[in-house]
Design a protein around this nucleic acid. Structure first.
Lengths: 161, 161
DNA sequence: CAGGATCCCTAAGGATACTG
DNA sequence: CAGTATCCTTAGGGATCCTG
């Protein structure tokens, strides 16, 4: 990666928690929070299933589900089927779904470089080819790390960034 | 995401730290470890710069740099310029570079959903368009979370996965 | 400059027991 | 089933001081 000249001094944006990566890590930066998001992608929606499949205590599950809901990645739904008791559901919001590239990226890295073989892979359900994460620009060019540049975002008409 | 039927029982691969995501989180799952990787992508290579730019103590910097080096994401180089004293350099390995999609993914999520505006963006240095992370299959089809399926990897000729 | 050693504090998380 | 409450252990990480 490289920098626009004006960004040479990182202190203007990198400190005090203003770095976007740091903000994201604040939300899903712990093992269990990320694994809960993994489970949500896998289709898990009930409290007990999160507990069992991530392998965490009910206290940890409760606090993380609450935090992720507050952060807007999950949404809580109470529903009741005919003759059944009421149930809770935690489902992915649009913001939660936006985390998919990160999840798949972590998955791919673990497959490629993890010490233990899990024998599992992610593929395109339609054609069977392995899923990959690519970095591209909006114009469609595939990017390597050398092609990525950080710069100050131009302000919009309201003077905001 | 969905599952191949044989994967309905997660316990075979999801537990005991065999989940690829969990393995990756073990390496870069803490705030400072990920921020060190961010800095490495930003081109930082010296001990003191990691310290200052991530904003961590020397003890924390030392232990994370050692761990990331041991995990194969960074490589330590001792070099000496004409008439200068010897210096250390931490540089990205191929495995470290493979983490780029995750880094950009976290970055993009923070830009889009973070509470604080950092006023910074990542773009293609060549054409100026914003960088994005996409999930595609190897055949090139863009994937949504519904298109991704997990399955047991076919064994190779040696009977391994 | 690049750490190591020590001390101390906080956050993450398990175990167990209890509740609407 | 979906949590709360309490207690306890461990990991992450800052501060300070020291060294090759």
């Amino acid at each position: 990666m490289r920098f626009e000249e004006t960004l040479a001094d990182r202190s203007s944006w990198s400190t005090a928690g203003r770095c976007p990566i740091e903000q994201t890590m604040k939300v899903v930066g712990s093992r269990n929070a990320m694994l809960i998001m993994r489970e949500a992608f896998y289709g898990t929606s009930r409290f007990e299933d999160f507990m069992d499949r991530v392998g965490m205590s009910s206290a940890t599950a409760a606090s993380h589900l609450k935090a992720l809901t507050a952060a807007g990645l999950l949404e809580r739904r109470r529903y009741q089927e005919q003759g059944e008791r009421a149930r809770q559901d935690y489902i992915l919001t649009a913001a939660g779904t936006d985390l998919m590239p990160v999840i798949i990226g972590l998955f791919e890295w673990g497959i490629k470089h993890g010490r233990l073989r899990s024998g599992v892979e992610s593929v395109h359900a339609g054609c069977g080819e392995p899923a990959e994460v690519e970095v591209r620009c909006r114009a469609g060019h595939p990017l390597t790390s050398d092609d990525v540049e950080l710069r100050v975002r131009p302000t919009d008409k309201d003077g905001r960034r």
